[in-house]
Every structure is written in C-alpha cells, then in structure tokens.
Design a protein around this nucleic acid. Sequence first.
DNA 1: CCGCTTATTTTCAGCCTGAGTACAAGCGGA
DNA 2: TCCGCTTGTACTCAGGCTGAAAATAAGCGG
Lengths: 319, 319
Amino acid sequence: MGEQPKGIKKSKTGRKASDVKADLIAVVAAVNNSGPCVLTVEQEAALPSGPFELAHRSLQSGLRDWVEQQTGHSLGYIEQLYTFADRDRIGAERVISISYLALTREEEVTGATRRCWGSWYDYFPWEDHRSGTPPIIREVLRPRLMEWADGAADTATRLERQRRAAVAFGLDERAWNEELALQRYELLFEAGIVEEATRDRRSTELASVPGRPMVADHRRILATGIARLRSKIKYRPVVFELMPPVFTLLQLQRTVEALAGRLINKPNFRRLIEQQELVEETGETSVDTGGRPAKLYRFRHAVLNEGAMAGTKLPLARP
Amino acid sequence: MGEQPKGIKKSKTGRKASDVKADLIAVVAAVNNSGPCVLTVEQEAALPSGPFELAHRSLQSGLRDWVEQQTGHSLGYIEQLYTFADRDRIGAERVISISYLALTREEEVTGATRRCWGSWYDYFPWEDHRSGTPPIIREVLRPRLMEWADGAADTATRLERQRRAAVAFGLDERAWNEELALQRYELLFEAGIVEEATRDRRSTELASVPGRPMVADHRRILATGIARLRSKIKYRPVVFELMPPVFTLLQLQRTVEALAGRLINKPNFRRLIEQQELVEETGETSVDTGGRPAKLYRFRHAVLNEGAMAGTKLPLARP
DNA sequence: CCGCTTATTTTCAGCCTGAGTACAAGCGGA
DNA sequence: TCCGCTTGTACTCAGGCTGAAAATAAGCGG
C-alpha cells in the first residue's frame, strides 16, 4: 500500500523513520505466606517501569536499573513477556512498551526503599480457585457477561460471546483452565466489566467492578505475566526461583498451588517432583509445624544443565 | 545505581529519555514439496524488515506493510517472537528489533514482485533429521565443537562446553531434541563455527562453515522462529495455517515432519489427529499419487473456538 | 498409651503413547 | 488375470504416566 521503496533494506528507504520511545515494564512475582504477589509502585496501582535510555547496556539491564531504583529490589530470573505499541497514542510520538516477567524471593527486607507487594488475587479475585470456584464468578461475573452477550447486535454474536465467556471462565460444566488468565481479563475488558475499560469515559451504569484496577494497561500486563508463569511452571523448573534455598515438599506444593490458583493432589505432586529428580534432601528436617517433621530439600541446580526439556505432544518416531 | 529519581512514574523522571528506532522483522514460514522454507529478500540473505513508522496503525500492521512491499506477499497468521536491542550499536542512536513469526501458504504466485523462498535446511543443514542424523554433525560439527571445548581455559569450562554441545546436538547417546534449534545456533555462534561469528573480524583459520549465512543477526532470528514453530505445533493446531484448504492425512504428516525435521509414526499420527477431531472428511478422495486413493480432509475451524488448550504437566486435582 | 496432626509410601485402575502388525484398495506389468 | 507394488486404514498390545485413594510412619499433648 502506498509507496513502493525499492531499496529493500531497513532504514535505507529514504523515508524518515520515526523515532519512538521505548518503555520497560516489569512484572516481578514472588510468593509469601499470604499468597502470590507482585512488586508495585504508586500505592500498588502500577508496575515498576521506566524508559529505555542510552545509559542502559541492554533492555534487561535497563529493566533491572529501573526496578532497583523504584523499589530497591534487585532482580534474578527475567524473561521477556511481550512488546506492545498503540498505547498512549497522544501526539506524534509513539511509545513502545517492552514487558518482562521476573521471579524473586520476597526476602531481603534490608532496603530503606519503599517496596510494595500487591496480592495477585486482589487484582484478579476470580483467579483463585484454591478453595473452590470463587463466588464472584457465579454472583457477579456470570450475570454481567450474560448481559453483555445479550447486548449483542445479532444472535450469532450473542452465542459467540456466551461461548467465549463459558470457555474462559469454565461456565456450564466446562473445566476451569488456570492458564487463560489473560483471556479472561481481556474478555472482561471487552465487556466493560473492569474499571480500566470504562474510566476516562462517561461512567456508564456499571457500579461495582471486581478486582483492584491499575494504572494504564498495567493490569493487562500483570495478567500476561500470570498466564505465562502458570503455563511455564508446568514444563520448566522455574518455581524454585520463588523458593527459599531450603524447603519442604509441602511448602513447594503450596507455592505452586498459589501460582496456579488451584489445589494439587499431594502424593502425585511428590511423585512428579521426585521422579524428575528436581530436588535433593538436605538430610535435615523442618522445625515441626504441627505434625510429623518434614524432610528438607534443596533444588538440584544440576537439572538446569540436563537439557530437561520435557513435553511432546506429537508421536515422533524414535531413531 | 546512580541517581535515585523520586518521581516514580516513567517519563516523569526529569531525565531526557533517549529516543530509539524500532525495526520490524518477519520470519514468514511456508512448506512446499521441497520442504520448509522462509520468505527472504536480498538473494535469500535477509528477512523482510523495515522501520516502525508513524503511518503504521500497529506493530503488526507495520510488519504486514513491509512484508507486502518487499515481497508482494500478504500475511495471515502472525505471532510475536522476541524483541532485541543492543545490535547495531553504532553511534548514539539505538535500534530495537521486534521480530515476528508468520505462517502462510506459498501459493498466490500472482504478484509481479520478486518473492524468494529460502529453504530452512540450507541455513541449518544440521536441523533436518528426516533421513537420520545428518552426516555434517558427526563429520564437521562434532569435531569443531570438541576443538572449541578443548580451547577452554580450565577443565571445568571444557567439560561444561562438552556437555552443552552434547545436549544441544544429541551427541553421546543423547536423544535429539528438535526444539533446541535456537540453542544450537547460539552454541555454534559462540564457538565461532558459523560465518556470522567470524565475519567483520580477522578471518581466523576456520575455513568452511556449515549453513548459508544471513545478513546481521537474521539467521539467529530465523532460528528463533523455527524453534518456536517446532514447539508450537505440539500444542496448538497451527500447522493448518501452512496447509491448502483440502489435504490428505499423509500430506499433513509430511508437513509436520518437514517442520519438525524428523519422522512421525503414521498410525499414531492419524490417531492423534482424529481423536482431537482437528479435521473432517470432505467426502472426496485424492487424485491418486501411486497407491490407494486417500481421503481428503479439511481443517475443522471450529476447534479454534473450543478452548482446545491441551497439555498440563502438574497433577492438578479435579474439582 | 491414645488421639490428633502432618509426612511419606503404596497401590490400583484408566488413559495415552510408541510400536508393530494386519488388512484394504488402486495401479501396472507379467 | 494375477501378482507385486504402493499407499491408505484399522487393530492390537505392552509400558508409562496420571488421577485418586488408602495405608503407614512420626511427632506432640494429654
């Protein structure tokens, strides 16, 4: 469409390529006694972020700098989440947001800097199924989603909306899928059921919207991080980034459950962990928390070197 | 480190955030009779790419525009791969590259524009295991990698390098893992065994380097795309983006084999496809290609709506 | 020693997977 | 025509993994 620059190579087209600003933004996750949480700023309403600057050696190091400056926390494990544009399309200059997921232990409360952890399930109350399906789904979300579906122009769209809602939220006998966290938030946004979708507009009739909102699209980015993490713990040993150096198997299980937002069968969890040889005994046992003392384990860092990529879904032939 | 801007929010720090240029770059994959291939420009030495400009409505639409202008091909399925910086660090201005994976059918040879498909396995001759392990691994890569390992400063590093090479390339009785395409390229780069690693430098003794090189880091991005696709076909029905509207099960199998670079057990492949109800019969049979006529199938687009997210690795408890 | 709590091990049936074998259907040449 | 070749399709079977539940072990307090 439009001109046809023959010079193929980028930035040699003769056009003046428009410069953009690049923002780095972090979802820093941890798990403590009260559950999974995320590192925030501005009264838990924003994720730590800042512009990518000349001084930064790389995108990741820029991110580390910003998070450290804003929260006093230094990051360990980092992985890229997604790169967005088309936000804040104010004026001529555009902003690109490069988002990251970081995992950390919440410890190190040494810093003098303010550090604010927000609970995942304050932002997404419908995501915690550890004590069964949260009432908010049946009592608030389901009716609202049905309203939204009914507001569709034609029948096809209405059925389509109902189906999407049912799949995302496990309605109508469908199974809950904890990995769909992002799709759920986006659906609620589209349906105008989260505050971010309606603010900056004439506030419609929608009164109580579930879940604590965040600045700009930060809650969406958080949902992206949660979805990614929930999916990743299933095929890579990343949970250990969130664990103290020594832990019991039940602690490990509780951490995974906190992230996944659902419960796990205890013997099966142990079997899985042990058969993959992810941990080794320290030889010591925990200072009893009530019943029989539990063995303490540590992560076998060696597994990271074992090309322990599991998981195939295709019937590949053996050599 | 350094200053401690108290104003938390991005772009309010008082610092002048440096602008950057954003490049969009595409790995456009297709499969034809001769195997899996990628859309290229500049004599198959570069991927289509171009700067993100003001005129573009979004990152994706910018990418579509560039690919269409440079190759005459319009894209269907697109997903983001990765965002890099720290390349082309010439002068003060920095470039961010946002890479995408696109899937397409090679058809539509209508365009007057030049369109150039490069075969995956010309760039990565060691990745095609459909006829057994390629000789290049034993005859060229293995010796070179061992040389590289032996060049290590200390024994620990040497063993580490040997292990990494063995895991990546399935040496020493280890199983080949087709999903490690990116790690393999990066390992070869680190070992100086691909041309990109040694060019622009005093050419060392390394003479024949395996695989056709590409401009800048395009071959690395291609490897990223291949790895992503090889992994994704295992849990999402994306293969169909590469298939004609109607096909036989063997054609489908051959396509998957081409992508994965390895063979699949025929009855098991059929069973998997059918039990997931990914396809439906058209009622017709193929114009015989030698043996018994094969039933023709088409993709059941409905599955995309069925929340067909498979795959869990955690023993989650049923409600 | 009993009852309570939590930890750890075993067992078992069902499903999925890799692998092999058998059978069906069209074609071409002897 | 029959045979052999090729490709497509169906069936079988053993092993491994998974979800679920039951059984056993170890500490604590009365």
